[in-house]
Amino acid sequence: MTIERIIRSMAGFMTLLSLALAHFLGQVDLTQVSWLWLTAFVGLNLFQSGFTGLCPPAALLKKLGFKETGSCCS
């Protein structure tokens, strides 16, 4: 696993962990439709891209003509 994938996985996990803690401590209600579901989606996407290497936003931006510069950590 590369450093970039580990960072993506950690970022996704921490995002999902913060949402779960807020929900279970009663600070936020995830049973209601809210913008927090967008945060959960982003966290899940980050987490899965860390393991699979598949990043839908990167593929979309590449098709739109944006250039790749390499690793986000370099």
Rank of each mutant, 00 (worst) to 15 (best):
S34M: 10
G26W: 08
L19I: 09
A22N: 07
A20K: 01
L46M: 06
W35N: 12
L61G: 02
L21M: 12
A20P: 00
T69L: 10
H23K: 07
A58T: 12
R8Q: 03
L46Y: 06
L64P: 08
L61I: 07
K62W: 07
L25G: 11
G43F: 01
L44E: 05
R5C: 05
F51R: 11
G26R: 06
V28Y: 15
W35M: 10
R8T: 00
L17T: 08
S18V: 12
M1V: 13
P56S: 01
D29I: 04
F13G: 08
T39I: 15
G65I: 02
I7Y: 12
G12S: 03
R5I: 02
Q27M: 11
V28K: 12
G43V: 00
A59I: 08
A22P: 05
G50L: 02
I3Q: 09
W37L: 14
V33D: 09
S74P: 15
F13I: 02
S9W: 07
F47V: 02
Q32S: 13
E68Y: 13
S71M: 02
M1P: 13
F41G: 13
L30A: 07
G53N: 00
W35I: 08
E68W: 13
A22F: 07
G50K: 00
L25P: 09
H23V: 00
V42H: 01
S34R: 01
L21V: 14
D29E: 14
S71P: 10
L46D: 05
S74L: 15
S18E: 03
L21D: 05
G12Y: 05
G53M: 04
N45I: 12
T52N: 09
L25S: 14
M1Q: 11
L25N: 14
L30H: 03
L44N: 02
F24N: 11
A40Q: 10
Q32L: 08
F24D: 09
M10Q: 14
G12M: 01
